[in-house]
Amino acid sequence: MPLTDQFVLFLVSLVANWFSALSGGGAGLIQLPMLIFLGLPFGVALATHKVASVFLGIGAITRHWRESHLERRFSLIILGAGLPGVVLGASTILQVPPQIATFLLGLLTAGLGLYSVFKPRLGMDYTPRNQTGAGLALGMAGLFVVGFLNGSITSGTGLFLTIWLIRHFGLDYKRAVAYTLILCGFFWNGTGALVLGVLGTVAWGWMPALLAGSILGGYLGSHLAIKKGNRWIKRAFEATTILIGLKLIFG
């Protein structure tokens, strides 16, 4: 791959993963279309993006791990409910035409941002709930659905996990983004990358620039999120979801 294209890939990956680490998802909606634009077929671009996205999780882990206070039990709930959905979604996406799914994803993504805008206190306070009984069962069903979307559509679904953790489980933005980046960014995406790598084809020659941008962008975005706090993250989440949703709807 020409050096100029590698540099373009690095810049795109850096910016996409910086936004993703700050707002809790969305890197794929910038990075995946760029891979297709530069000449990769959809299936190859999808598998390549999924592998690269694992390194967003690595970049985020290096910054969030000591300050995020992730709870072991709740982390295992997110992994246990979401990973089967990731595997199922990644196993089916290469057989599904993406046009209708992309349009619906755009509507839902923009809707998440607007919902947050009209709920001023959403994600501002840490009020944990629904971690036992029927509330937990419903929450795990939602995590499975988000996992399926993560494995199949792959682009921007970290945003769905962030808002589900806030809306249903009562997390604030700062904690929800930490869970999303570490558990979804590394473990969910790693599982999806493994499945897509086996079933599809990865453009390994494109990886050096993508990996460097993912790690650096993930670290820098996480650093800014930790420093700025909930209100700043909330605004970044709203802007990212609305803009990405419009991009998906209108192309």
Score class of each variant (00 low, 15 high):
residue 1 M to C: 10
residue 1 M to R: 10
residue 2 P to T: 14
residue 4 T to Q: 14
residue 13 S to V: 05
residue 14 L to Y: 00
residue 15 V to N: 02
residue 17 N to P: 03
residue 17 N to W: 02
residue 24 G to P: 00
residue 25 G to Q: 02
residue 29 L to Q: 02
residue 30 I to N: 09
residue 42 F to C: 01
residue 46 L to N: 15
residue 46 L to I: 02
residue 52 A to R: 09
residue 54 V to K: 10
residue 54 V to S: 12
residue 59 G to A: 13
residue 61 I to S: 08
residue 65 W to E: 12
residue 65 W to I: 06
residue 68 S to A: 15
residue 70 L to W: 00
residue 72 R to H: 14
residue 72 R to Y: 12
residue 74 F to P: 14
residue 75 S to L: 08
residue 76 L to W: 14
residue 79 L to A: 05
residue 81 A to Q: 06
residue 83 L to K: 10
residue 87 V to I: 15
residue 87 V to Q: 07
residue 96 V to N: 00
residue 101 A to T: 13
residue 103 F to S: 07
residue 105 L to G: 06
residue 106 G to L: 09
residue 109 T to A: 06
residue 109 T to C: 07
residue 113 G to T: 02
residue 113 G to N: 04
residue 114 L to K: 01
residue 114 L to S: 00
residue 118 F to H: 06
residue 124 M to Q: 15
residue 127 T to Y: 03
residue 127 T to W: 03
residue 131 Q to P: 03
residue 133 G to V: 06
residue 133 G to S: 07
residue 133 G to A: 11
residue 136 L to S: 06
residue 137 A to S: 15
residue 140 M to T: 09
residue 141 A to P: 02
residue 146 V to K: 10
residue 147 G to M: 01
residue 154 T to A: 08
residue 154 T to Y: 06
residue 155 S to T: 14
residue 157 T to M: 11
residue 157 T to V: 09
residue 160 F to T: 13
residue 165 L to W: 00
residue 165 L to M: 11
residue 165 L to K: 04
residue 168 H to W: 15
residue 168 H to G: 01
residue 169 F to A: 07
residue 169 F to W: 08
residue 170 G to V: 08
residue 172 D to C: 05
residue 174 K to T: 15
residue 175 R to F: 11
residue 177 V to H: 01
residue 179 Y to N: 07
residue 179 Y to L: 08
residue 181 L to A: 09
residue 185 G to D: 01
residue 190 G to W: 05
residue 196 L to P: 08
residue 200 G to E: 11
residue 202 V to Q: 14
residue 202 V to A: 12
residue 207 M to Q: 06
residue 208 P to F: 03
residue 208 P to E: 04
residue 210 L to W: 07
residue 218 G to N: 10
residue 218 G to F: 00
residue 219 Y to W: 10
residue 224 L to I: 14
residue 228 K to H: 10
residue 228 K to S: 14
residue 230 N to E: 11
residue 233 I to G: 06
residue 235 R to H: 12
residue 240 T to I: 08
residue 241 T to P: 11
residue 241 T to C: 13
residue 245 G to V: 04
residue 247 K to D: 06
residue 247 K to G: 02
residue 249 I to Y: 05
residue 250 F to I: 15
residue 251 G to N: 03
